[in-house]
Design a protein around this nucleic acid. Sequence first.
DNA 1: GCCCTAGCGCTTTTT
DNA 2: GCGCTAGGGC
Length: 871
Amino acid sequence: MIRMTEPSKITSQNVPDHQPAAGGIAARARASVGPKYLSGLNPEQREAVETLDGPVLVLAGAGTGKTRVLTTRIAHILSQGRARPAEILSVTFTNKAAREMKHRLGQMLGHAVEGMPWLGTFHSIGGRILRTHAELAQLKSNFTVLDTDDQVRLLKQLLQAENIDDKRWPARMLAGLIDGWKNRGLMPSQVPSGEAAVFGNGKGGKLYASYQERLKILNAADFGDLLLEDIRIFREHPDILRQYQQRFKFILVDEYQDTNVAQYLWLRLLSQAPSSPSFASPRLRGEADAQSAAGEGDSPSTALVETPPHPNPLPASGAREQTPPTKNICCVGDDDQSIYGWRGAEVDNILRFDHDFPGAKVIRLERNYRSTGHILAAASHLIAHNEGRLGKTLRTEDQDGEKVTVTGSWDSEEEARGIGEEIEQIQRKGEKLNEIAILVRASYQMREFEDRFVTLGLPYRVIGGPRFYERAEIRDALAYLRVINSPADDLAFERIVNVPKRGLGDATVQMLHDHARKRRIPLFEAARAVVETDELKPKARGSLREVVAQFDRWRAQREVTAHTDLAQIVLDESGYTEMWQKDRSADAAGRLENLKELVRSMEEFENLQGFLEHISLVMDRDSGADEDAVSLMTLHSAKGLEFDNVFLPGWEEGLFPSQRTLDEQGRAGLEEERRLGHVGLTRARRRAMIYFATNRRIHGTWSTTIPSRFLDELPAANVEITESKGGSAWGGTGGYGASRFDDMEAFGSTYSTPGWQRAQANRNRGGGRNGGGGGSVGSGGFEEQAATFSSSSSSGPDFGSFSSRRRGPLTIEGELVAKSTGTTSEFSLSDRVFHQKFGYGRVTKIDGNKLTIAFDKAGEKKVVDSFVQRA
DNA sequence: GCCCTAGCGCTTTTT
DNA sequence: GCGCTAGGGC
């Protein structure tokens, strides 16, 4: 039996750097793997694995062996005896990725990797650290992690207390704002006042503050807190930070392009060399830094650094601390696969790596082992239209293979039919359905495919969608367990106090709330007190008394009953199981099944507490990947996966690129959409098939769409336009699809599109790096944003050249762009217009560049203005 | 307190 | 087209 270092305890005892872990994984690794694990690597991969000292950025394009490099690097560290398993911090974004790494490491080392206690997602590791020091965040170590739903419900209560109309100011919106602030590392006092004021007539900041207070009272933390509170603890308690710094001899980060500011700060604090206590609480938005950065910068706007009136502010997006010595941190990522900007990811983190981590070694992995030549060329050519890139050129030694196909259909139904037929053909050729994926932009696209597949009897599985623990029945069951575990969990109590129905309605809950607030006690205790009075009607009083008694009983049982048994008892005695058994709706059986699954899954945990700690962080839905089935998922959830055959439906303006992203994020949004396209294409090993439809149902009504601009950006030499089965989409002669796409011929494979040329020019100018040093300190003040925006927007050729990019525009530019370049139509109401396909008509409604036109013959249609002309 | 219905608003991606 | 909510009826 091998004893690993106690994972959850941080000792300040210093372990000598090179002390090999006697008898641990390391020793095994050395003995069993030897240098063999290096032999299959190409020179770049090998360099990425072997460069152990100092910061390393591995730019790993799609399919270049990223995970392999990460896992081999860990194996190498261990086998070299440079660290023990518990001294390696290895973070990923998803549980899936963490599992995958554990799995591959296990294979490499020849056994399971239980000795890697610090391999996990940002959130699970952040949560773990927070639990260790919970009292420093005014929490108990058994705090609850709230998900979005709890968050919103809590905020709703706060809005009500503040008398804010939650129609006009939806709780969901506030949740989004708070999330955004947390993503940027901002505590309530640090939110720029201008931003805090945008919600609820200036009450946004106050609400954020009282939300945080409420969380402490409820002994709860949200996702953002798991990192943000760590950061605060690290800053306020340098001794604690130092313990972690000493412990983690090596840090590895997966998907670095997806990190947000908070994650960046967290990593940065942990990655500093422990021997320099003066940096333990790094200077923030330091004046010196600001000055020098302004000097370095290439635009006067950079000098506008907001100086907030708060003590000890955290840097907002863009502020960089002065650069302390860093230790062995290795970040792996691909700027071309950054698709989470909308939830706070900062591509800049990866773009600026060598500025943040001086002396960083940047290693590019450009050899693709996944896709054929045509697919890779199409993907590369598409992504070359983006301007803010580090620039990589993927290459393959594979054959060209089949060209990427582009197929037009009349409408989305025909699209689904066409893809269904195509899949059946592939199946007839003897290929596995597991090797087929349909990647959509928006989940509502899935429905049509599901309908079709059900009709065809084609097995499919949806990947993504609501997580297991987000289902109502699971959340209800968990709420019961939460109340048992943590009587202060008002949100959980409120959720189930009347589920199943016990005659405890709004009125009762409201009175409990009043009671609780007056005495500053949890709802549960308020309930206990209230049943002793005659404030409630006898009926309600009776049920409430019963509820309180039940919980008291369950809590007592907890001491003597296995947690799985307890859960079963709770579900039965509370009447919850019965509630679903009596339910006649179609999904009741499934829900009961899910409840069983939940109880079963508890076995993996030692006790109730441990189960609840992890449930919200690591529990994901059952994949059921065993049977042969077509995979249906969004482009986002496809990242990291690969399939022989990939279908990419819905390449239409408005859907992909998404109109909303364009409106909200402007140019940055468009580039992110394009990266999404790149991700989609590079999922394919052998065949990539793009589809677009001329008519699609959006919000219930049919509207006409135009092919995605991304189709124009594909290289003709690697693309084949196939006939739709219905044959109507290209519109025969007059269809705009045809004319738009035909233009592409002019660009052809000579790579001479404007975007391509721009990209080339950018690359040549500064190699994508170095130029200007990017000394930005953009801190997020509105004035600065405006200044940055106006300077960049006016400098046509320079805009977006890599060196002139800075944080500000990436986040807030969107809105400004949307407003200023905002597609205001040149048409006015009741203008007489002509459309190639629909003939003459009159404008009845204008929405940006989208016109609603009453056509004389074709009826009312929504059309983008560039496709009509004045009649 | 509960249930039903009509009407409204919203529709991307998720650790 | 859908899901949620508010409001009215029981």
